[in-house]
Design a protein around this nucleic acid. Structure first.
Ligand SMILES: [Mn+2]
Ligand SMILES: [Mn+2]
Ligand SMILES: [Zn+2]
Ligand SMILES: [Zn+2]
Lengths: 142, 142
DNA sequence: AGCACTTTTTAGAATAATTCTAATTATTGA
DNA sequence: TCAATAATTAGAATTATTCTAAAAAGTGCT
């Protein structure tokens, strides 16, 4: 029997990352797979559309629930551009996001290895940073 | 007569910054003054509440309209934290925002003079940055 | 000032992303 | 197998924001 405590019946291991303390249901796996497969930054609605291809019965509420669970367990990141719908990102390395206004594409912008945030910013005395979000908008010279 | 072409009757000069090409109405002045006076980062609803103290007839729609006009003309900045209501900031210097999770306060975080964004980020080849948003969440050691 | 024209304000309706509710289904662990 | 817990679901509710259309205000003539 290949199923273990983290793998409910019928789920393959590669659909089923063992996220610390998060029960990996079929729906959560499917949502996670959608993000891993495309590696772009879809909205909840887009995740829903893609998930329905493999799992026609999944609901939008469940997609929201799964995304929230994955975000809370650090398996996925939530990305916001201004007031637009939230987008979701499977890239867990420290990075910001560049929104190309011409193509509409969202490009991951890695933080340079070893760079200090305090070289760029006059941080408040004693500040302890729990979360950093860097968002860029612009164009790319052709 | 002290009124000039940019100062409709009854408005004092200091309520009435001459924002390039933006007609400075009583409502826009009031909204702008609310932001300049408190220098925190209120939501549209909070601006509405404060504006009503001086101008009881102003409407929420107008507050939204004024804020949009001021943002579009660069007199004020719009700041977003995750999915919360937009906040508005009268500080036009380049800065990010630190949200102190304990006090709830939002603190301006100046960009260090002369610091290069490309020292921190692996920017896409040929990227031209039109807009940069830096958002931090955390606590301040007591 | 009087008049046409444009812009702004306003109250209230509409929108849309997200969250909530409550019922059903699935999973766990004894 | 069975009770307890957790997840999923459809649809309703929420809420920040935008839209609509009518009234008011401002502008630039003459
Ligand atoms: Mn876009
Ligand atoms: Mn807070
Ligand atoms: Zn990303
Ligand atoms: Zn600010």
């Amino acid at each position: 029997m290949k199923n273990n405590i983290n793998e409910p019946s019928g789920i393959q291991a590669d659909d089923c990352p063992s996220v610390d303390g998060l029960r990996m249901t079929r729906q959560r796996s499917e949502v996670y797979k959608v993000l891993m497969d495309h590696r772009d930054h879809p909205t909840a609605g887009e995740v829903f559309e893609r998930a329905k291809e493999n799992m026609p019965t999944i609901s939008l509420a469940t997609v929201y629930n799964c995304l929230e669970a994955l975000v809370q367990h650090g398996a996925v990141r939530q990305v916001n551009f201004e007031r637009e719908s939230s987008r979701y990102c499977p890239n867990l390395t420290e990075h910001g996001h560049f929104h190309d206004e011409e193509s509409g594409e969202i490009i991951d912008v890695p933080l340079k290895k070893g760079a200090m945030l305090s070289d760029l910013l006059e941080l408040p005395e004693g500040a302890q940073i729990d979360n950093l979000e860097i968002t860029l908008r612009g164009t790319i010279a052709e």
